[in-house]
């Protein structure tokens, strides 16, 4: 009761300055919209770890010095960085998804949803960007340190795990945070294959209500807020991990 009266005053107030939020008082459209926000947040929460882990694997392959590992990854990274994510998404969804469907015998058996494809494509796209950042970080680790570790009997893997990655991660953190902000923005391409994230949900609402400006303001504020949080978290992690005297 209390809630709905606050909501109604809000709607009335916004109406006075020319913004239309009437749909919030209806059950159905308000639910669609709220679920849109939740889906976007869920996508972001899922994509950040996925992209970081995949990026780490790519970076390890790129710097391994073994051509059979680094060449395919390098090819993948270059193609991913230089073609639009939307095209990759359409390609995956229309072509790879059809292959999977044929493989399991019909689209009804296909376990892969549009949601999966958004996570896979956007996750790997950002992972390619992470990999580039981490590779630069790994290559920036002074060679004397790597040689010292090798002299102490560290294996290649141990050098990567205990010497290169801890320093490389700190050095590449600003670039990684930048990529994560891109990631937040890229979740909107899910719209193209009917993943009901916030832009898709908003289209559903504004085709009925014709209140594009009102919804747009909320969406812009929403994305700004998420990105400010991501950037702040990045700065916080950077400070937490800073090595005194190392300049990182």
């Amino acid at each position: 009761m209390q809630d709905s009266s606050i909501l109604n005053t809000f709607i009335a107030m916004m109406d006075r300055i020319g913004l239309n939020y009437e749909f919030l008082a209806t059950g159905y459209e308000a639910t669609i919209w709220r679920d849109g926000f939740i889906t976007t947040l869920y996508l972001i929460a899922l994509l950040i770890p996925v992209s970081l882990v995949a990026g780490l694997v790519f970076a390890a392959c790129l710097t391994s010095g073994r051509p059979f590992l680094s060449a395919p990854v390098r090819g993948f990274v270059e193609i991913t960085r230089n073609t639009p994510t939307l095209v990759q998404l359409m390609f995956s969804f229309l072509v790879l998804n059809t292959f999977v469907s044929n493989l399991v015998g019909g689209a009804q058996n296909n376990p892969l949803t549009p949601f999966f494809w958004v996570v896979a494509v956007v996750g790997l796209h950002i992972a390619a960007l992470h990999a580039e950042a981490m590779r630069a970080g790994i290559e920036a680790v002074p060679s004397s340190m790597v040689e010292a570790a090798r002299g102490m009997g560290f294996s290649q893997w141990q050098i990567l795990r205990h010497v290169e990655l801890p320093l490389a991660f700190r050095a590449s953190l600003p670039a990684i945070v930048n990529n994560l902000i891109n990631l937040v923005k890229l979740t909107t391409v899910g719209n193209a294959i009917a993943v009901s994230e916030i832009t898709y949900a908003s289209i559903m609402v504004w085709t009925q209500r014709d209140n594009v400006v009102s919804l747009m303001i909320v969406i812009l504020v929403f994305f700004s807020a998420i990105n400010i949080v991501v950037a702040r978290l990045g700065i916080w992690v950077e400070r937490k991990l800073a090595v005194p005297g190392y300049g990182l």
């Binding site: 994305f223 700004s224 400010i228």
Partner: peptide
């Protein structure tokens, strides 16, 4: 700058198209 740098391109294309 802050608002439009953080906004997804797709959202801005939708905004200009529909507004």
């Amino acid at each position: 700058v802050q608002i439009f740098r953080n906004a997804p391109h797709l959202v801005l294309i939708f905004a200009t198209t529909y507004i």
